[in-house]
């Protein structure tokens, strides 16, 4: 198992806390919480040792497409492929942004 921490600048916006996925074979769970600082901090625990560069590339790709918000994203990965990782991250971001601001 390896722990990887990545940070990117993050746009301040309203986010609902969300959790998607499961730590099952070839899958991962992605948990998003809002953060006060304008930073997207991504904390990854993965069963795949030596995958740091790959994670950086995936995060950069998602950032280019979706512009990361200010948040704390926590990931538990159980050997997911880059495609699955991207889908889960995008799914989590979409859900976190979609839910309306509570009254």
């Amino acid at each position: 198992m390896q722990t990887i921490d990545l940070t990117r600048p993050g746009r301040t916006e309203f986010l609902s806390p969300v959790l998607v996925g499961c730590v099952g074979s070839g899958d991962l769970e992605v948990l998003i919480e809002s953060a006060p600082e304008p930073v997207a901090s991504i904390s990854i625990k993965t069963s795949v040792v030596g995958s740091e560069v790959r994670w950086q590339q995936i995060v950069d790709a998602v950032d280019t497409d979706l512009e990361l918000p200010a948040m704390k994203m926590s990931i538990h990965d159980f050997g997911a492929t880059p495609g699955v990782i991207r889908l889960r991250m995008e799914q989590a971001l979409e859900l976190a942004r979609k839910q309306e601001v509570p009254a």
Partner: peptide, 13 residues
């Protein structure tokens, strides 16, 4: 689990 190199889950399953 982490001490044994196994990725945990936030709700412990």
């Amino acid at each position: 689990l982490e001490k044994q190199g196994i990725v945990p889950q936030f709700d412990d399953g």
